[in-house]
Design a protein around this nucleic acid. Sequence first.
RNA 1: GGCUCCGUGGCGCAAUUGUAUAGCGCAUCAGAUUUCGGCUCUGAGGGUUGGGGGUUAGAAUCCCUCCGGGGUCACCA
Length: 632
Amino acid sequence: MENKIKQLLLQHSLELFGIEIEENLVQFQQTRKEFEGDLTLVVFPFVKIMKSSPNEVASKIGDFLVGKIQEIARYNVVQGFLNILLTDQYWVDQLRLIRTSSNYGFSEQASKGTVLVEYSSPNTNKPLHLGHLRNNFLGYSVAEILKANGHNVIKTQIINDRGVHICKSMLAWERFSPLNSEGERETPQNTGLKGDKLVGKYYVVFDQQLNLEVKTVLERWESNDFSGVSETLKEQINNLVVARTNSLDEKSLEGINSKLKELAKNETSLMRDVKEMLVKWEARDPQTYLLWTTMNGWVYEGFKATYEAMGVNFDRLYYESETYLLGKDIVADGLNKGVFYKKDDGSVWIDLTSEGLDEKLVLRSDGTAVYMTQDIGTAVDRKKDYPDMQGVVYTVGNEQDYHFKVLFLVLKKLGYTWANNCFHLSYGMVDLPSGKMKSREGTVVDADDLMADVIASAKEMTKERGHLEGMSESQKEKLFSQIGMGGLKYFLLKVDPKKRMLFNPEESIELNGNTGPFIQYAHARIHSLLLKAGGYSDFKSTQLLIEEKELVKFIAQYPEIVKAAGAEFSPAIIANYAFELVKLFNHFYQTVPILIEKDELVKNLRLVLCEVVSDIINRSLNLLGIEAPEKM
RNA sequence: GGCUCCGUGGCGCAAUUGUAUAGCGCAUCAGAUUUCGGCUCUGAGGGUUGGGGGUUAGAAUCCCUCCGGGGUCACCA
């Protein structure tokens, strides 16, 4: 309708305004609910051209439109806003149209080109935590939203399965795991621990042992025992000690102490051994490699269970161990093209100062790859795997904003046009009411524990108030998980991703207010209503109640909402729409009788409305990765 | 310090391609419902959108500046 009016105004702009007008002068907005109307045209832009009062201009346009478009019933003018009222017949026809279109609001599948969505991307030395939940839910949801917008989506992740941090867990396990009666070290099998938890445990053990050794090294230095310490390091230490005796304020004292600690760390046997282990790994030493594959295998088993509970999945996995060497050829190529330059020591850089950024290293002086090299390589590699790839969405925390800014710029400079469609889906940290999550202070919320908690609370509440009769135990368990996870996902997704957010465990599974279960409940209730109604066929109405019309109008916006969510990579837009829809529906449901309506045709119209609303709720929740149970 | 993101009722959030009286949830208070699932609905109180200045017919939104908070500035990933 908006388009129709716009075209009409453009066609007749000469007779109306005296000159040809530009398309962007025709601006619409939603009519405020205190005024009568379904659509509002802002007339200020025309006032300037016509040099008459806003009201006159609006009336002229209003009269013109009423004459030309039969679906327009009448109009009114308030302070330069032209409120247009459409006929009830128009809205009834819209409803009919919506009901008959399959997958209403969604674009045709795979009509738009391939996009990769990367998310999760864990390290294999620690279990997943609350932050990963936000990441996974976001990535999964954005992938679903892009699919709904017609893209062919490949869900992917890059698993950080190598490096010093991985070796730390390996070394700690090898060295500190107790032996059981059979002489075996701890395994998931003989301890019953989840694999990722077991490996994470040894990562912590490593840190503890390292701190002990750091302490003894520092004590040795304090007592002037510098055996085995190089001359240059000794000088560094002495300088720091002198600076410490001279400094008065606490802050610089703290800084000096942490520097000393850093130096001591590098002098521990543990760190030396870990580095040695990494070198061995890179040389593919069979024993080290076996240890690595074994322990990573445990972690993958653990992650598999966590992903299953989360309800997310992936189409294609990339492993850092396979990609960390990639990108060197591309760097060499870029060097030839003059995109990069080489410093005297052989390291390769890119100069981004003209873009307002810094110089950035892309290859070490010893020729080894850095993070950036790998990411360039992986991106190009993916294009090889998916030749029709148009872009990549990277779901990564906002601490890496700068990295991705540089990465996209480098790819562009290298001449990859798809780099223009790359997007860093950057999200803020999840805070707890108790403050920041810190692994050292044990305030990290484990993903498995949290999901279990939330499901347990859902169980409590549903048992009290739910409709569980006739359900088997496994059906009940499934329902509790749908409600608990629905609450958790909705809570994490309803907020604008780039904002830092506060996680409130109790509120997330609340059944009232702006929550997932509130929306699920509305869906379940409609389902039971439709069951009770039995069949229904044709509907008709010449006059809509205000509650009915409001609902149809809101439903009519759905395609726009799906598009906007896709364009902005924002599940929050879907979440907020679903909540508004449910509130509007609840109001309708409360005030308008449905099953007891005597006029069959009117009753059927209301039932169709219910059906369409339930379908939209269901598919909106699915876009968020949330299931909509039929009973709860 | 440079760059960057954020700042909206007590709390948590929406509106940020400018537009009418800044919306919503929680909490608080007052009400409705013999009827389709009371996990419902209606209403009230609560705001100079961090401060100041500017652009505009019109600013939470754009520009400048200051204040507060986060992130980042490694031959780590």
